[in-house]
Simulated assay, not measured.
Amino acid sequence: MYIKKILWAIALIGLVVFGAIAFYFYNAMFSPNTKFEENVKYIFVSEDDTYSDVREQLIPLLDDIDGFDALAKQKKYISNIKSGKYQIKNGMNNNEIINSIRSNSIPVKLSFNNQNSLEALAGRIAVQIDADSLSLLKAMYNPDFLEKAGLKEETVLGMYLPNSYQVFWDISADDFVNRMYKEYNKFWNTDREAKAKVLGFSRDEVMALASIVYEESKQKTEQPRVAGVYINRLKIGMPLQADPTLKFAAYKLPKYKNTVIRRILNVHKEIDSPYNTYKYAGLPPGLVTMPDLSAIDAVLNYEKHNYLYFAADPKRIGYHRFAKSLSQHNNNARAYHKYLDKQGIRK
């Protein structure tokens, strides 16, 4: 009889302990465990992060980190960390959180516009995804990739079209470059290819001229007219004489490092560079900046006219006055130079 009572007591204690453990794990799994007021919070997990790194991000977001630890261990998440951007919604329980950060990586909106070099572009991209700027530059300048894509160091900037893209935060540098190459080929559809062929331009040549057009005018309505001026010059063998190419050439020299050229002077026209389109006829060997999509299409759909010259309009800043004759252009140029003098802009 006494032994039976002991056995019953042990069984009862076991049931109580089991119930307590079951209750603990039920709470750990199904009770809300967030302590932030916003609707959603995000954590970012790098490829080489450990559970400790993830836990550090979770501590400020969760009411009971110990309960989360226990369930994460039971569900083997601790040894199965996956990189990516993950969302934690207000009111989620531990089970939902673990399921979310285990397999529900969400994309990010990656944007860039008009960087003037791959170095600047890599820096812009690196703050939006996990890959750092050095790994991005290595992938961008990868000789095997350039050969496959038919691009050169001088022209590869044209492959990166300014826009917004959906990518995963943990996309690798190589995968990012390949994704941009895919977008580039998609942009160059049969219609654009046909228009380039009519012009007698390669993709690279269109992009080089578009970069000049974009630097000359940010006005989308004016860009086709500016493009038409340059195409008219090319048709008659006249040098492009594009000021943006002079700035580009100057900025490559130590003398002009960390300076801003606001006014083109005769000294700039003497710079010996293949980008100096006052000295060398034809298109420069590469882009001078990353053009907007509007500038690319402005070249492909250039305005047909008889203008050979244009000068900035002092009465409509950002716009230009166009001329068919050199004498008319000189009058327009003098008006703008007077404006620069009045503003105290000497260089």
Rank of each mutant, 00 (worst) to 15 (best):
I296F: 01
V213H: 02
V226P: 02
K279L: 03
L234F: 08
P239H: 07
Y280F: 03
N258A: 14
Y214Q: 01
R233H: 07
P284N: 14
K220W: 08
Y302C: 05
P274K: 15
R263W: 02
K235Q: 14
Q219R: 12
Y307H: 03
Y251F: 13
E216Q: 11
A295S: 12
R225C: 12
Y307D: 07
A295C: 13
Q241W: 01
L246D: 07
L253F: 07
K220R: 13
D297Y: 13
P291A: 08
V213D: 08
T221R: 08
K257V: 05
Y307E: 14
T277G: 05
D292R: 11
Y256T: 04
V260N: 08
G282C: 08
P254R: 12
G286K: 01
V267M: 06
A208L: 07
D292V: 00
I231V: 04
I212R: 00
E216R: 12
S217P: 04
N232G: 13
P274Y: 11
E303T: 05
R233C: 10
D297M: 02
N266G: 09
L209P: 02
T289S: 11
D297W: 08
L293D: 01
A281E: 09
N276Y: 14
N306W: 08
Q223M: 02
K279S: 08
Y230W: 05
P224D: 05
L246V: 05
P274A: 03
V260M: 10
L300Y: 12
G286C: 06
V288T: 02
A298H: 01
K218P: 07
K247L: 06
D272W: 06
L265F: 10
V260K: 11
G237R: 09
Y280I: 06
P291V: 01
L287Y: 13
M207D: 03
D292M: 09
K218Q: 15
V229F: 11
G237F: 04
P254Q: 15
P244V: 09
A208H: 06
A208Q: 06
N301W: 04
I264S: 03
R233W: 11
D243C: 08
T221I: 11
G282K: 04
L240M: 05
Q241F: 11
I231R: 02
L246C: 09
H268K: 15
Y278G: 10
L265H: 07
V213I: 03
Q219F: 12
P224K: 05
N258L: 10
Y278E: 15
H305Q: 09
S217E: 08
E216C: 08
E216S: 08
Y230D: 00
S273C: 13
L240G: 05
P244N: 04
K257H: 12
A298L: 04
R225A: 15
V260Y: 04
I261C: 06
H268P: 04
S211R: 00
K255S: 07
Y280N: 15
Y251A: 14
P224H: 10
